[in-house]
Design a protein around this nucleic acid. Structure first.
Lengths: 338, 338
DNA sequence: TTATTTAATGATCATTTGATCATTAATGAT
DNA sequence: ATCATTAATGATCAAATGATCATTAAATAA
């Protein structure tokens, strides 16, 4: 097109001259902006006053915003990480990121402090985001424990809490797992489905036996109804299942996982740095929500913080395993930089 | 109502306790504001992301604006009087005020400079506010002369210019009056109706004779079609008609006007400090638009500046005789203070 | 003059927003 | 427990806004 027309156009300029832009009338633009933003007149009223068309006003206002003649500034609270949150949301296409303050030194004391902060933030998030009809799934772990500790009671009519992972470890720890779901259900006055089963079984046969249990079966069947799932993100080196003298799983299986490219887990579903599930024999021994089911959940809220969890979180984000992230500010910074 | 219920309410508080306000979540408000104003998400999208209802978002944004959490600032051009303009618009319920810079010393040199500035501003106003189908009325005077001097040509299809006041003074001055309308019509390529008559006649009989003239009659009949009327505001002490040795009108009439409470005129219609028309015999000797007709015009643009015009302008504003005011900044200040 | 280009405008329509009203919620008084 | 009160919420509707498209305008080349 360009070249073809060269011949009968101006050979020097290669083209016709377009109509030049109208000179921008700064006075008019700022006057319109003033009437609109300060005097709160609507565009129609301004148009009438200034004898211009409504669309002209609309376009002048757009110009004003585009050219920075009107500037909108937001007063953030002092302890805010909203800018950081927004950047993370953009980078990983998350529905929401909530960032909490963590003290700078990363020792075990501050780790437990981070836990409490994360728990509080997660509880706040839960409190403001639940709505009638929701079906909430919970895994377990110290982070979720911390969340439950901070949840305020809130009476509801039609809510459902579902335990999505069996207990692991000695009986008292197993009890802990169901406790978390039960306590949340009590705080909200919701229906409750527990998973009265170990999180890990020794064989596929043992799993099949459990799956035939009516209560287990009914809970598992509800996984597809969950619209919000709260999960902790586990790191490898802190995972109780992978600790050397833990006899929850065979050391052979432990080795298989540790030698894989796994960087973390969600409810014992291990994944690598890309967030892809790591296929091991272990996968078939879990009584809990699977990776496939998790991916179908509308909103998965991942809660994790501290330097140890960095790679696990990064993997979960890359694989889009979670939709909402609740994290501490230092880890957030690193996630943004990576 | 109040008192009646006292008896079965708490006698100490005199009333029931209402439900207390929800605690304002500054973090949420500023987060929503950020998503809305910085990320340009719409309320629906934000609601979906944050699992809140669209109305909740709308209300949070309103809170944010009301509480000053989002602030909108407008960068005005350096030489702006927009704040002053807006205040005058508010005070006198004007469609628009345009203020031009006048130098501080108020001598005759700066007076003519103000004239030029006013003329330029008026020309700009005219240029941007005319639209097809408009019927524009013009009086005459040095200020309108200055306006015409600054009007840029603008081809139009369906515009009408009407002279609304006959000429006054010696023949060459009379010609000047029609010149103004003719020149504007030429610049715009519009239809034109002149008023080939003296602005002031000696008797009611003489007026009736003129009114029977076809050309005069047809122009006068068009006054009701005028939607925008450009007028200068006259002061008493500068009015050529009232100058001592002017023989345009009898000294008796001059005295009648000067002894009345008149503060100024629009097209030889004298008015007092409240903008009410001053009734003198002079009223019936004018060939031009009357006060009643003027008040029916949709937009009357008054152009005037300088210290001498202050009371005249103030009267015109009080009486709502004009809808748009083009004035200098010093006079504007005084008008706001009064 | 006519042709060609892009800017500006205005009409129409879809989206976005906010106002209003009815309902529910929370709280202390009774 | 029920009542009285106001806050908060959600549904519905009307107003405000902006996107799109077709048209007109302005400029210059041919």
């Amino acid at each position: 097109m360009w070249q073809i027309k060269l011949h009968y156009h101006n050979p020097y300029t290669d083209t016709y001259m377009p109509r030049p832009n109208d000179p921008v009338d700064l006075r008019l633009i700022s006057k319109v902006s003033s009437l609109y933003y300060y005097q709160n007149l609507n565009q129609q009223a301004i148009a009438k006053r200034l004898q211009l068309s409504r669309l002209k006003i609309s376009r002048l206002l757009k110009q004003a915003r585009d050219q920075g003649i009107v500037q909108i500034s937001i007063a953030f609270p002092d302890d805010n990480f909203i800018g950081l949150e927004t950047k993370l949301e953009e980078k990983y296409h998350l529905k929401e990121v909530v960032i909490v303050e963590s003290s700078i030194s990363e020792n075990s004391i501050s780790e437990s402090l981070i836990q409490r902060q994360l728990g509080l933030a997660a509880a706040n998030f839960l409190h403001r985001s639940i709505s009638e009809g929701d079906v909430i799934g919970l895994t377990w772990g110290t982070t979720l424990q911390a969340m439950i500790d901070s949840v305020q009671p809130k009476p509801t009519k039609d809510l459902h809490v579902i335990q999505t992972l069996g207990g692991v470890g000695p009986p008292e720890a197993k009890a802990h797992a169901t406790d978390i779901s039960r306590r949340l259900s009590n705080l909200l006055g919701s229906k409750l489905n527990l998973l009265p089963a170990p999180g890990i079984v020794e064989s596929v046969e043992a799993k099949n036996v459990l799956l035939s249990d009516r209560r287990v079966r009914s809970t598992l069947d509800l996984f597809s109804k969950i619209n919000t799932l709260y999960v902790g993100l586990g790191a490898l080196n802190t995972n109780p299942v992978l600790i050397k003298d833990n006899h929850e799983i065979s050391s052979q299986l432990q080795q298989e996982i540790l030698k894989s490219d796994a960087v973390g887990d969600i409810g014992l579903n291990f994944f690598n740095a890309n967030g892809d599930e790591v296929n091991t024999k272990f996968k078939d021994l879990i009584i809990g929500i699977s990776m496939e089911e998790l991916k179908k959940v509308d909103t998965v809220v991942g809660i994790a913080g501290g330097a140890q969890k960095l790679h696990s979180i990064a993997g979960a984000l890359k694989g889009k395993l979670i939709d909402v992230l609740i994290v501490d500010n230092h880890t957030a910074q690193k996630l943004l930089a990576s």
